[in-house]
Design a protein around this nucleic acid. Structure first.
Lengths: 144, 144
DNA sequence: TTATATGTAACTACGATGGTTTCACTTGTT
DNA sequence: AACAAGTGAAACCATCGTAGTTACATATAA
């Protein structure tokens, strides 16, 4: 199974904000993502708590990037919206009367932590600015 | 969110099989994992399809490793039991009328594929034999 | 022949996710 | 001052995947 779509939508939102020079309302963002404004606001709340975006209430309000787009890595985004580790462990504790059951969780945790760190290290190599550049490059290529 | 516990349980099963020199019945494995035999048999079916274990029916039957424990990497196990990519994309297609909406999925796919490859590369560095050695080392250390 | 297994289908319970509606509150504009 | 355009947050619902469980047909060693 895969993680939720929150990461994908969060990157979408941030890339959109990076391409704008004024606060964008949740309704506009929802139009681009293809969902409804309340959902976007929920996710933006998480991103705001993580210090990635800031919001303005009232008319002409909306969300904008809290930092420069080239200082926000996809790892930052991932950690903001995805709390658990991507590789799950046992649902219940294994049998402590068995050697493998007793020691497997510790051994597995070491492995999965390392694997996830490798993945996040990879995500850290891309920023929101990079994503926007990538999107613009693709759009140019498609137009030709 | 995280993946299912299938990977963790599968590694548990395989480590257990690596420590045995005869076929183990699902009931015994279930006792070590802390769940019920039918669940174990379901998972073993997947591992058998992937060519990691083989099973024998009837009395004195059970599951055993199909290959040497030092030739089964955790990446093999991961791919056998976890079909989807770990990082999900959008639930529905974004709005193609918006540049970001139109291009973000392609850009994201490139990123997430690379990130998952990095994670799997990391998992490939450990084998079931390594897991068993790790478990045995931990058990020795605990006894002291 | 019997005990011990697997393989598989069917069903339930539960939690996370995405989606939706609604309402109080804030703020720029006229 | 009134209004329009926003956010923030709560309360739901539907859906889906997972884990768990039971049951039974089938296979096989002793």
């Amino acid at each position: 199974m895969s993680t939720s779509s929150r990461f994908a939508v969060a990157v979408h939102i941030l890339t959109l904000l990076a391409s704008a020079d004024e606060p964008l309302p949740s309704s506009l963002i929802a139009g681009s993502v293809g969902t409804n404004p309340a959902l976007i606001r929920r996710l933006i709340g998480v991103l705001a708590q993580a210090g990635l975006v800031c919001t303005a209430m009232g008319a002409a309000g909306g969300a904008s990037l809290a930092r420069a787009a080239n200082t926000i890595t996809l790892r930052d985004v991932f950690r903001a919206v995805e709390s658990d580790s991507v590789i799950g462990l046992h649902a219940g504790a294994p049998n402590p009367a068995c050697m493998v059951g007793r020691e497997i969780t510790g051994a597995l945790t070491r492995i999965t932590d390392r694997a996830q760190a490798a993945m996040e290290e990879n995500l850290a190599q891309t920023t929101i600015a990079g994503m926007l550049a990538d999107v613009e490059r693709s759009a140019r290529a498609r137009r030709r």
